[in-house]
Amino acid sequence: MIINATDLKNNLGKYLRAAEREDIIITSNGRKVARLSAYGDEAYSAEQPPLVRELVEAYCQFPRKATYEEFLQLSENSEERYEYIDGEIYLLASPKTTHQQVLGELFGIFYTWFRGKKCRPMLAPYDITLKRDLENINVVQPDLMVICDLEEKLNEKDYYMGVPALMIEILSESSRGKDSVRKLDLYMSTGVKEYWIVNPFNKEVTVFLFENNDVLKNTTYKKDESISSYTFEGLEVSLSSIF
Rank of each mutant, 00 (worst) to 15 (best):
V102I: 14
R35N: 07
Y68H: 06
L235A: 09
A66H: 01
M122L: 15
L74E: 06
M167L: 15
L103I: 10
T129S: 12
M161F: 01
K131T: 00
E169I: 03
A5D: 12
E20G: 08
P121G: 09
I147Y: 09
M188Q: 10
K65T: 05
H99G: 13
V102P: 02
R182W: 03
E211G: 02
Y44I: 01
L103S: 13
P50Y: 02
S229N: 11
K14C: 02
Q100L: 15
K222S: 10
L134K: 14
S229P: 03
D224V: 07
L171P: 04
I85F: 09
E69I: 11
E20F: 11
K131W: 00
C148D: 06
G30E: 04
F232D: 04
M122Y: 09
V192L: 06
M188L: 07
N155R: 10
V163F: 01
L51S: 02
T206M: 11
S228E: 12
L134I: 02
I137V: 10
K193D: 04
A38R: 14
T98K: 15
L144P: 01
F201G: 07
M1N: 07
T67K: 02
N4V: 07
V205P: 06
Q61R: 08
L171T: 14
D224P: 02
S241I: 00
D214M: 08
S78R: 10
N4G: 04
I197T: 11
D86Y: 09
A19W: 06
G13L: 11
D143Q: 03
P125A: 13
R132L: 07
K217P: 02
R115Y: 13
D143S: 04
V139K: 08
D158T: 13
I85R: 08
N213K: 15
K9Y: 13
K157L: 09
D149V: 07
T6R: 15
L72G: 04
K222M: 09
M188F: 01
D7T: 13
Y68L: 04
P164W: 04
T231K: 07
I170M: 11
D158K: 15
G116P: 04
V198E: 09
V52D: 14
N29C: 08
M167F: 06
D41L: 05
Q61K: 13
L150G: 11
Y230G: 01
L166R: 01
L130N: 00
R176E: 15
P142H: 06
D149I: 08
E20W: 09
L106F: 05
E83I: 06
L36T: 01
A43P: 00
K65S: 10
I242N: 09
T190D: 00
S228I: 03
K193I: 03
F210R: 05
E194I: 09
K222Y: 02
A19K: 12
N155D: 15
E42K: 11
L134G: 09
P95Q: 13
I89E: 05
F208M: 08
R53Y: 11
I2P: 00
E169A: 06
M122D: 07
K14H: 14
M188T: 00
E236R: 12
F208K: 07
I89Y: 00
Y39E: 14
G116K: 10
G108T: 12
M1W: 05
N212R: 13
L74W: 13
P50V: 04
T190R: 01
E70S: 10
Q101R: 14
V181D: 15
K96R: 15
K118E: 06
A124V: 04
L16R: 14
P164G: 06
P142M: 05
Y160N: 12
L36N: 08
